[in-house]
Design a protein around this nucleic acid. Structure first.
Lengths: 229, 229
DNA sequence: CGTGGCATTGATGTAATTCAAAAGACGTGG
DNA sequence: CCACGTCTTTTGAATTACATCAATGCCACG
């Protein structure tokens, strides 16, 4: 079997890398909303979420925050040029830990160890898949379509296949900044989906998909009358 | 020097891959708007633009088109799982040619040839940089911010550094579908930027940046009064 | 010289933002 | 355990920006 040149959907992956990589690893942990890594640090390191959840944020000159990516165990980052988009990583929920690897050491290791090289490549491809999915979510026009697409994607990442109770560890603000819409709009859209029985909110940060078909339909942003009443 | 684990900004790159890869290559060419590759084909192949420009499109169930990426010479695609997001590649301007490589052969080659493996990885990382940039562009709230960010990014990709005349080979529809806004809005925004002397339109599909600072400011979407009159 | 696709501009409706406030969660300390 | 303050979420009303509909202008091409 050759090196994978196609990103597969990010299902629940092995949160540890390959063995020889792990000797370079440092474990980092932080409280909720704490910054794990700033832009500069990302220049020399390479990160991977082990437990919990994290977000990658970018702030523009006027303080407007943008969330570039949500990270679950197994998700890695540090591939993108830090000079380009100053981007920090922050803890989303309690008990979040991340593995940190020195970039130099990793590069050297990849040079000699094919398994490491393959492992890195796989994670880069995973990252591509996540970004691509995100691009498509953001591309959807209406707020309803974006929120629906986000919920579907998140559910698949957390618990592929099953439609059980899904934890939504991030705040509505986080979701809003991820989708590029206002918090109030996120909230309103969720209540619409809830009152139409497309989803159920077990708690404010925990939901279930009741009608997956309707949710997928809403994603397409076509005719909303299907949701009407 | 080890394998690069950071994507650098996509400047003008060598449009040919490394030598041993090129033996697997087939050259494909097409007229304007022709489809070079459909979703299925992307499962078994891996592509790279040699000359001209291309776009990667995704159509949803209701016929709404979304442009996922614009490709210039040196830009590659075929990393993402085709099952996930059915995505086709189409020719944007006359004289566009693309190199096509069989995925299997490439994987096998990468297994034995470190240079090939490195080359593939670099292009994957380039792809990440493009997607990341795009994500940030789409995240910008206002139409003005999106169009401005798009113009800046495109200018940097075409001609890094200099602010000379930039060719904009794609139609306004393409730009609209790339930015997730209406064609009319793209057109209106461009005329605003033109009348404020932020950019100049040498022709409908050719522009110059007159005031880069103002364009960067518009990108942030902060205070638009700076552009007022 | 006409035809058709692309681009621009105008008028109107609508969905999302913004401003404002209330209601609900959550922790702290009395 | 309850009272209190703070932060998050939800809901409401007003405004704004974008989409949509419609028409005209503009080239390129046959």
């Amino acid at each position: 079997m050759g090196m994978a040149v196609t990103a597969t959907r990010s299902g629940p992956r092995d949160p540890g890398g390959c063995a020889s990589m792990e000797r370079l690893r440092t474990i980092v942990r932080g409280d909720i909303d704490e910054t794990i890594c700033r832009g500069e640090e990302q220049a020399d390191h390479w990160f991977r979420v082990v437990t919990g959840a994290a977000r990658r944020c970018s702030l523009n000159a006027y303080g407007r925050r943008q969330i570039v990516d949500f990270l679950l165990p197994g998700d890695a980052f540090g591939f993108d040029a830090p000079a380009l988009h100053e981007c920090s990583a922050e803890v989303v929920c309690a008990g979040t830990t991340m593995a940190r690897y020195p970039r130099r050491g990793l590069e050297d290791l990849a040079e000699s160890d094919l398994q490491v090289s393959r492992c890195l490549c796989d994670m880069a491809l995973d990252s591509i898949a996540r970004l691509q999915t995100r691009t498509l979510i953001l591309g959807h026009g209406s707020a309803l379509a974006r929120v629906s697409a986000f919920l579907l994607d998140w559910a698949d990442r957390c618990d592929p296949g099953r439609d059980s109770a899904i934890s939504l560890p991030m705040s509505r603000y986080d979701i809003a900044d991820y989708l590029g819409i206002a918090v109030e709009t996120v909230s309103r859209t969720l209540t619409v989906l809830r009152t139409r029985h497309v989803i159920a909110l077990r708690a404010t940060r925990c939901f279930t998909i009741c009608d997956r078909e309707a949710l997928e339909l809403a994603t397409e942003g076509g005719d909303e009358s299907s949701l009407a009443n």
